[in-house]
Amino acid sequence: MPLIWPALIVTILLVVLPVLYTIWLSLSDRKIDGSNSGFVGLANFQTMFAEPEFWNSIRVTLFLFVLCLVVETVGGLALGYLLSIDVPGRAIFQGLMLIPAITASVAVALVWLLIYDPTLGAANQLLEAIGIDPVVWLGSREMAPWSIAIVDIWQWTPFMALIIAAGIRSLPSEPFEAAVIDGAGSIKKALFVGLPLLYPVLTVAMLLRTVDLVRFFDTVYIMTQGGPVNATNTLNVYGYTAAFIDQDPSYAAALQLSLFFLVIIVAGAFTWLRGKQSNAE
């Protein structure tokens, strides 16, 4: 079919070739000046595995991934339930809840920079109003990853909720009626009837978030650039700075490929668990 060739060619040029080139970069030694001393085998990967910062960035990435995914899923379930109930004004509220997810991450990061400002920020002013000492949100190693996580949770929990709400609204009502006849209360109904039925939608939502969370970049790069002292240096930010700040494209390629593998492994594990679960039912 001739109609598909343009798209296919462009996809190969824009997606497949860069991936192949990155693989070549990771196996060779490209210098800052653009010269390449050729094939070096797995040397870049050996350097990477020996580099403590690589393991730190994996740790930071997984920390943010697990923390954000858990909170966003639990929060998304609660908010999603709220969004699934038919009351006047529901559509307007749903529109409001969409806003964090579609606002440009640059704008989100800038607003939160102002909120987190150590002296005049809204966060510390709120804490002060209820008598809590100010917090160094982005400037301390201990706090920065949590502060970054809060931004992501803020931006994406409503998005999870919207997917979950759509899932809840399309659930059949018979199993719930049957549960009522069997004498189940509302909490039992939600936990033992609703949640299992919601499982397919829930895993799709979690998978979508997973792919993005493992590739955590925008808000971190804008708010902390991976700092302070690499406390928020996710693998994606590390892969970017290695290429464009440290100007070591071959080492960066090794990092980026590891990130790609990490995304595939986590997403694959997810899909596998999902398949296993639905087979078990």
């Binding site: 079919m1 109609l3 798209a7 296919l8 996809t11 997606v15 860069p18 970069l25 980026q256």
Partner: peptide, 30 residues
């Protein structure tokens, strides 16, 4: 074409584009 010919192959490429970190495209493009 994807719909009429029931092609799954292109779906794989678009999934690749969705999962690959943007940084991977930036260096080659640079």
């Amino acid at each position: 074409v994807v719909v009429r010919r029931k092609l799954a192959g292109l779906g794989f490429f678009t999934l690749l584009a969705r999962m690959a970190p943007g940084v991977m495209f930036v260096v080659p493009l640079f």
